[in-house]
């Protein structure tokens, strides 16, 4: 991790928006937007995820940090980060959803990390299996990220994946959320392709799956 990225990490942990803004502005004078994301923001967000997994920072800090990053990127790059899906011949299409729950925080954090890292992701919000299945198929989603809070919803992912395999066998599914943190075999049990135990995990997972921004 570079010293500038570490400085950003410290600013984010302290929720110091002004300092984070200065660091991004300095980096922007030297690098392109994508390089700023790659060199500065992405390592800081990944490290935040690692710290949370080790009990060394709190979910509220991760959420508020992501929010700060998202806002600053919009300011610095002069445009709102887009949720539009890429063209069909562009990078793989990403979708994200919460299954059967009104607790959307985990999904929001992952979405923020993705956007701050330069990914475009279609946010389906809260969904049941039937509706999500139909939308994923209609939108041509290639990698689907599913967040769950409660165990029954985490188990319901199995139904989603089984039915997805029938109608869209190429879709890869990444799961995350509390139940998967308490049972390290649960993601395999439901048939997912990968599991993220913290928000920062999603970036290396996508890299492994060959998905670039």
């Amino acid at each position: 991790m570079s010293s500038s990225s570490d400085a950003l990490l410290q600013a984010l942990l302290a929720l110091n928006r002004v300092q984070a803004q200065e660091l991004l502005a300095q980096a922007r004078a030297e690098y392109s937007p994508l390089e700023v994301i790659e060199i500065l923001i992405r390592p800081a967000l990944e490290e935040l995820g690692q710290l949370w997994e080790g009990g060394d920072c709190a979910l509220s800090q991760i959420y508020m940090s992501g929010r700060i990053c998202e806002e600053l990127l919009e300011e610095l790059f002069g445009e709102a980060l887009s949720d539009d899906l890429p063209e069909t011949d562009g990078p793989p299409r990403l979708g994200i959803a919460v299954l059967e729950d009104y607790h959307l925080l985990g999904k929001q954090i992952v979405r923020t990390v993705l956007r701050a890292a330069g990914y475009r992701v279609h946010d389906y919000g809260r969904q049941d299996v039937d509706t999500l299945l139909e939308q994923v198929r209609a939108d041509g989603i290639e990698v689907l990220l599913i967040s769950t809070l409660m165990l029954p919803a985490a188990l319901r992912v199995r139904t989603l994946i089984e039915r997805l395999r029938e109608v869209a066998p190429g879709v890869r599914v990444v799961v995350g959320g509390a139940p998967y943190r308490f049972d390290d075999q649960l993601w395999r049990e439901v048939g997912a392709d990968a599991v993220g135990l913290s928000a920062g995990d999603i970036l290396p997972i996508l890299e492994r799956l060959g998905v670039k921004p």
Binding site: L15, S60, M64, Y102, L104, Q108
Partner: peptide
Amino acid sequence: PVMQLGFEHYLILMH
């Protein structure tokens, strides 16, 4: 408040 507002809105309120 996690149930009263939703988790995300509650964190924003708190901060």
